[in-house]
Design a binder for these strands. Structure first.
Lengths: 260, 260
DNA sequence: CATTTCTTGTGGCGGTCACCACAGTTCCTT
DNA sequence: AAGGAACTGTGGTGACCGCCACAAGAAATG
C-alpha cells in the first residue's frame, strides 16, 4: 500500500469539474489544451465522470448535470417542509406592521420570511441570512438590512465577530430565531458562530420568539443559546411533552402550536 | 396585426426545450431529423435559445442550464454570457494566490467569481454581492467577507452608507469592479448606491481593474464613478475604438482583450 | 528485478459540426 | 398586388470529434 495517491488522473478530473462550474459547457479540445494532455485522455475522463453521473456528456464536451450543486442545503431545507410552512405561517401572525425585526438565518425562519413577504409590508428586517434577504427583498415594502461577516456556505449566512458587532448597533421590537435543538435548558445550536448571532439578536430585541419543529425537541446541541426563560414565545408544529413541556410552562413562555 | 402567431419557429423551439427535458444533452443532427428541418435551422434555433439563456449551447448540440443560482437572477445576467465568461476568465488571470480582493456586485463580476472559485484558492474576498458570496463560498479555500447594508433586490447586493462605511475598514490588493457604461470620462454607473460602493472599493485598493463588455462602450450613465486614469487595468471582450481607445491609451491603462 | 496493471499517447478513418454566402419560400405590411 | 422582412434550405470548405487498435511509459505487485 502507498500513502501517495496517484494524483494524475483524479486531480485532472476534479479540475475538469471545477472548470465546468465556471463554464457550463466545456469542449474536449480546450480541456486537452488546458491540461496538456491528449484529447483522447480527456475523452476518457469525461466518459468516466459521466459514468458516475457527475457530468452530462455532450457531443464534443460535457455539461453540468441539471440540479447538481447544492444538495446539502436543499436537503435540509426539504425535510419537514409542511411542518415548517405551518410554523412560519403561525409565527408571521405574531408580527405587526411597522415593526423592526431581527431574523436569524435558517431553514425554518426562511419559511417565516416567505410568509412575511407574501402578506405583510412596512417592515424593517435585520438578518444575517442571504436567503432571507433575497426572500424578503422581493417585497418592496420591506426594508432589509443584511449584516456583514464571514460567509458560511453551509449555513447560507454570514457569521463571526463582524456580524455580532454589527447587530449591537440596532434595536428591534422582535427577534425571531431558530435552533438546532430545544431542551429544558433552553435552545441549543451546533454552529459556534451562529450561537453568538442568536445571542446578539436576543440582546438587542424586546421580544424573543423561537421557531422550532418537533424534530428538535430534546435534542441537545453543542451550545445553549440562552436560558429557556429568556424566551417570550415558542412556535412549534406539535406540543412538546414531558420535562420540556413542564419547563416551558414554568418559564412562562407563550406556546403557539400550528394547526395540522 | 395578426392574431395568428407564426407557429413554425416558436413551436419548434418549445419542442426542442421539451426534448431537452427528457434528454439532458441533445445533438443537432438528431433534432434536425426529428423535426424534418435542416441542421442549419436547428443550429439557428439553438443559438437563439442560448442567447435568451434558455439552453446552454454545446459543441454539436445543447444542454439544459444548470438551474443553480441564476434561474431567478436577473435577465440581465443571461445576456452576453459568452462574452462575460471570457472576460471573467481573463480577469481571473490577473489575480494571484494569497491576494485580498474587493469585488463589486454585478453580472460580469459574477462570471469572474465563478472562475476564481473554480481555479484558485487561498483568497480573501470582500464583496457586496450576495450572488458573489454564494459562488465564492463554494470554494472552502476562499474567505468571503460580505458587506452590510440595505439589500437591493434588483442588484442582488447590499448598498448604502453602511456598505461604504464598512469598506473603509479594509485594505485590499485589488479591486475588481464592473460598470454600466464606459466613456472617455471614465466608468459610469446608473445606480446611485452602487456608485459609492465602487468608489469605496477603489479608494481602499492598490490596484483597480475594470471589467466591461463591449456593449458598455461609449454608454454614458447617470454618474461617473472615477476618472479614467484612476484605473490600472481594463478587461474587455473587444478593443474599444475612437476617442475611447485614445483615452484609454493616454491614461496608461493596461488593456486586456479576451480572445474569441 | 520481472511481471502485471493502469494510464496515456499516436495515428488514421469516417462522421459530424461550424461557418458562410446565396437563393428560395412564406408571411406580413402598405 | 407589390414590396419587404423574416425564415429556411443548399452547398462547400475547414475544423473538430468519435472510435479503434496498438504501443510506450509509469506505477504497483510479488
Amino acid at each position: 500500500m502507498s500513502a501517495a495517491r496517484r494524483p494524475r488522473k483524479r486531480e485532472r478530473q476534479e479540475r475538469i469539474l471545477a472548470e465546468l462550474h465556471a463554464d457550463p459547457a466545456v469542449r474536449i479540445g480546450a480541456l486537452a489544451q488546458t491540461f496538456a494532455v491528449s484529447s483522447e485522455t480527456v475523452r476518457r475522463d469525461l466518459d468516466e465522470l459521466s459514468r458516475d453521473g457527475r457530468v452530462n456528456r455532450t457531443y464534443g464536451g460535457a455539461a453540468l448535470p441539471p440540479m447538481g450543486v447544492e444538495a446539502s442545503l436543499n436537503e435540509r431545507y426539504r425535510r419537514l417542509v409542511a411542518e415548517r410552512t405551518r410554523i412560519g405561517r403561525l409565527a408571521a401572525t405574531l408580527v405587526a406592521p411597522g415593526e423592526v425585526l431581527m431574523i436569524d438565518a435558517g431553514s425554518t425562519t426562511a419559511h417565516l420570511a416567505r410568509r412575511l413577504a407574501a402578506e405583510l409590508g412596512d417592515l424593517t428586517v435585520v438578518t444575517n441570512g442571504l436567503g432571507l434577504a433575497t426572500i424578503l427583498g422581493a417585497n418592496p415594502g420591506i426594508r432589509v438590512i443584511l449584516c456583514p461577516g464571514a460567509y458560511d456556505a453551509r449555513e447560507g449566512a454570514v457569521l463571526g465577530p463582524e456580524t455580532t458587532a454589527f447587530l449591537e448597533r440596532f434595536h428591534a421590537n422582535t427577534a425571531l430565531i431558530g435552533a438546532s435543538g430545544l431542551t429544558p435548558e433552553g435552545p441549543g445550536e451546533a454552529n459556534a458562530g451562529a450561537v453568538w448571532v442568536k445571542r446578539a439578536m436576543i440582546a438587542r430585541s424586546q421580544r424573543h420568539v423561537l421557531l422550532v419543529d418537533r424534530s428538535k425537541f430534546d435534542q441537545p446541541s453543542f451550545q445553549v443559546v440562552c436560558p429557556l426563560n429568556a424566551l417570550d414565545d415558542l412556535v412549534v408544529d406539535a406540543p412538546p411533552g414531558g420535562a420540556l413541556a413542564e419547563a416551558v410552562a414554568t418559564a412562562g413562555i407563550a406556546l403557539h402550536v400550528s394547526a395540522a
